[in-house]
Amino acid sequence: MSHRLPPRLAVRMLERVLTDPHGEPLIGDLLEEFADGRSTLWFWRQTLVACGLGIVREVRAHKWLSARAVATGWALYWLSAMGVVSILPVLDRWLAATPFVSYTLLAEALPFLAHAATGWGVARFHRPHAIAMVSFFCLVLMAQQGVAMATAFVFTPPRVPLTGAGLWLPPVFGLTRIGCAFLGGLYGAGTSYSEKSQRRLSGA
């Protein structure tokens, strides 16, 4: 019998996403198959499919909660955006006398922090289904930003054709901000699952 350990991150993902009654036996089945000689790549593929289907199932089973998660996310997003806009002039005044901190760097970092806070808030307000709700909110955010970017590009095309960084930086920044929202959501979902996972993997 194999004594290999399954990828911890994959097991943690499964434990956090699959919160319905079929989650535990599914994780057990994957661990059993892995111990029987399946590859790490196989385990990851199964994890991604299971997590994707799990999120879709949770969103379909809790339609109103999903709608509430998106509404909560937008409200928090708007509030944090307002916060960023109002804090920037104050920061500007404070940092004028401080040569050590770059105002530009902070101004660039704040939207990422605001997104992380938004994801964290969505997770905290929807604890029992936090990961599914945060994932759904991030997907909606991604769709909205994609549409906004495409619309801006079509209706107000840049005067100079975009090349290099000008072309790929905006979508990369957009995706990174959404990634921050997702990471904030993971943090907001709590650490109890990972602790449970650690105990199980060590056989305690």
Binding site: H22, L26, D29
Partner: peptide
Amino acid sequence: YGVPIAKMIEEISRRSVAAGSVYAALA
């Protein structure tokens, strides 16, 4: 249970089956 169900479908259909889709169908 999940493992033999997935294995049987894989053997007969000769296609790989994700355990997640087996459980989604079972649910």
